[in-house]
Design a protein around this nucleic acid. Sequence first.
DNA 1: TCAAAAGTGTTCGGACTACACCCATGA
DNA 2: TCATGGGTGTAGTCCGAACACTTTTGA
Lengths: 235, 235
Amino acid sequence: MNRYPLQRHVLLAVDCIIFGFDGHDIRLLLIKRGFRPEKSKWSLMGGFVQQRESPEDAAVRVLKQLTGLGGVYLEQLHTFGNPGRDPVERTVSVAYTALIDIHRYEKQISDDYHAEWFLLSKKPKLIFDHDNMVELAKKQLRYKAAFHPVLFELLPEKFTVPQLQSLYESIYDTAFDNRNFSRKVLSTGLLIKQKQKDKVNSKKGAFYYKLDEKKYKADFKAFLNFVPNPDRFVL
Amino acid sequence: MNRYPLQRHVLLAVDCIIFGFDGHDIRLLLIKRGFRPEKSKWSLMGGFVQQRESPEDAAVRVLKQLTGLGGVYLEQLHTFGNPGRDPVERTVSVAYTALIDIHRYEKQISDDYHAEWFLLSKKPKLIFDHDNMVELAKKQLRYKAAFHPVLFELLPEKFTVPQLQSLYESIYDTAFDNRNFSRKVLSTGLLIKQKQKDKVNSKKGAFYYKLDEKKYKADFKAFLNFVPNPDRFVL
DNA sequence: TCAAAAGTGTTCGGACTACACCCATGA
DNA sequence: TCATGGGTGTAGTCCGAACACTTTTGA
């Protein structure tokens, strides 16, 4: 069959907003763009969608290129297609949010890209409309995390409840009552207590937990309410 | 500046999932496709994104073409870009959800397209991946409507609380307690009571209400809970 | 022994549900 | 006058927020 006549074609790209958690703050993985225009300015990791590839596949590939990681949490965020967004030629970009365990990230793999983890609050200005992408991803993450257990994707296999709480606190930039928080979290039955304690952050030590993977997957869409009064944060 | 070398280009389209409410059921506006391939099969309304147009603009244009309506609620849903989704040539489609007041819709405008409002439960099979689009839009509408007052977009300027309740009931395919429902809705202060009553649906008659537009816009992102136990429906 | 973080117990208030009951009206 | 749907009142329950208090341990 023939092609559709008279229609203009565009370039199709993906960009990944990659979040990590360093134990204290949320961070964003950025690269120094390696080609023109805007060469060596800070940018999201991205790439063009290849001929036999879905945008999703492309995002997975690009993420692996940069981090060496597979099996990462990845979700389509939004498509950005304003005519002037890339000055070179019309390029439509499908943006994806990725949440990775920063500890699994191996720096050497991405040295080619001069990648760096930035504090969200101290990120540099990015090329094109990438700042908007990050802004939207932040909002959407806040929204989603208020109801669904996505943030576990940012933690290592074993973690303590206070660590989880720091993560939430850094996302919502506020402090929660630790007593209520731990009870809420544990009452979901999502966590399996380990024998060891983390003694780094306190004298008493906090028990490590692992995710109950089965329950986690089953409950992934279920509602939690680790965040009190989400109204305050999501607006 | 030159173009990016060596990159394949694709066609960019938009498709609109258009919902309406007939007073009893949710309906979906479909057209008979007017060109090949799949000519005269049922399809979502869509079109190609033009050269100086954003996908959003294209969706607005396409919607106006079909319904004659402007100022309609429109939201980007998801981008579908699997390589084989359109057999003619690679086409990436950005899907939009539209919610329109079915009463403002003027049939004659869209006669060219042989458009029809289908019951969601009785919709025909659609071309390409349009069935997936509809499925996703339905899920997302259920999700969103459980927390945010989007469904008002489907109602006429004046409506009764029982009408609103029917709308929710048809979205969630269940029955709510009318006594609790009306109290919840009214307690938001979003509705302004009118003098007249709707006497069609009952002998006693139910008061008409109008949206308090100011509050509506302010509260649009706020959380409501018209839907008891949303967990049951959103999964 | 004391400071500091982890974690348990208890109370209080608000929100949500369920349901009895009253209202208005046309047939 | 009665059937029908609209709407208010109210009691019971549950859940989350607040916070006093205990536990553990390194310095």
